[in-house]
């Protein structure tokens, strides 16, 4: 039993294809009229036969050029999308910071939005009650927390969203290109928090292009290139190799 579950995320022979519609036939008539015409659908393989195991407590960076399939891989892990072939398994409570502020409503106050946003991550009211002070304190928005968030600046908005996501106490944290939230002070704070989480045995997967930050946090890196894993190993080694091809 223990041996079986010493991974947090397991990706088993996963292939993901997207259908690319040039002109999407969405109505019944179009489907009927064009049902033979397959020309305007193109299948694009974004990820092909990926095998990956991420152990519990690991902090992993996904690197690669734009459009290489990093974000798709992350989305597969969260079960927002499903693989065309293969299987994705995750053990433990998973939170994704793919896009911040999911379910935020402009007319509600910051406090109400914390409840709404956290409930999307699967927290109950009691759990949120316990954490709300931490969340507010982390966001440093005490003064504005009872104002509707449409009055917030975009930086404040992101700070609130990030504070919720990072405080929901997930065992697996998926982060997509959001290390650049807020001002320098807040960024440092986020960075500190990530380190803390890393030390508390959480599994973290980060997609980012700020390689220097990745070097500081992660221990392992996976380089994805055109839907394949090109390299998987020690963070510095992978990034060095990755940088060489970029020159």
């Amino acid at each position: 039993m223990d041996k079986k579950k010493n991974y947090a995320i397991k990706i088993d022979h996963v292939t993901k294809k997207f259908k690319v519609y040039y002109d999407k036939a969405n109505t019944l008539k179009e489907r009927l009229v064009f049902w033979k015409n397959k020309k305007n659908i193109e299948e694009r393989t974004v990820l092909e036969n990926i095998n990956l195991e991420i152990k519990k407590g690991e902090t992993v960076a996904l690197v690669g050029v734009n459009g290489s399939g990093k974000s798709t891989l992350l989305k597969l892990m969260t079960k927002i999308i499903y693989p065309t072939k293969g299987k994705v398994e995750a053990v433990g409570k998973l939170t994704s910071l793919l896009e911040l502020g999911a379910g935020f409503h402009d007319d509600f106050t910051g406090r109400e939005n914390i409840y709404f946003n956290a409930s999307i991550f699967g927290l109950t009211k009691e759990e949120i009650d316990k954490k709300i002070e931490d969340i507010i304190a982390f966001s440093e928005l005490e003064k504005f927390i009872d104002n509707p968030i449409r009055t917030y600046s975009s930086g404040m908005y992101m700070r609130l969203a990030f504070s919720v996501a990072i405080n929901v106490n997930a065992e697996i944290l998926l982060i997509d290109e959001i290390l650049a939230v807020g001002d320098q002070h807040f960024q440092d704070k986020c960075f500190q928090k990530l380190k803390e989480l890393k030390d508390s045995d959480k599994t973290i997967v980060i997609v980012s292009h700020s390689l220097s930050a990745l070097r500081k946090i992660c221990t392992r890196a996976i380089w994805i290139h055109e839907g394949h894993i090109r390299m998987d190993g020690d963070i510095n080694e992978v990034i060095d190799n990755y940088l060489k091809t970029c020159e």
Partner: peptide, 9 residues
């Protein structure tokens, strides 16, 4: 659609 694309639930 907005939240469906962003988070799992």
């Amino acid at each position: 659609a907005g939240i469906i694309k962003k988070v799992y639930f």
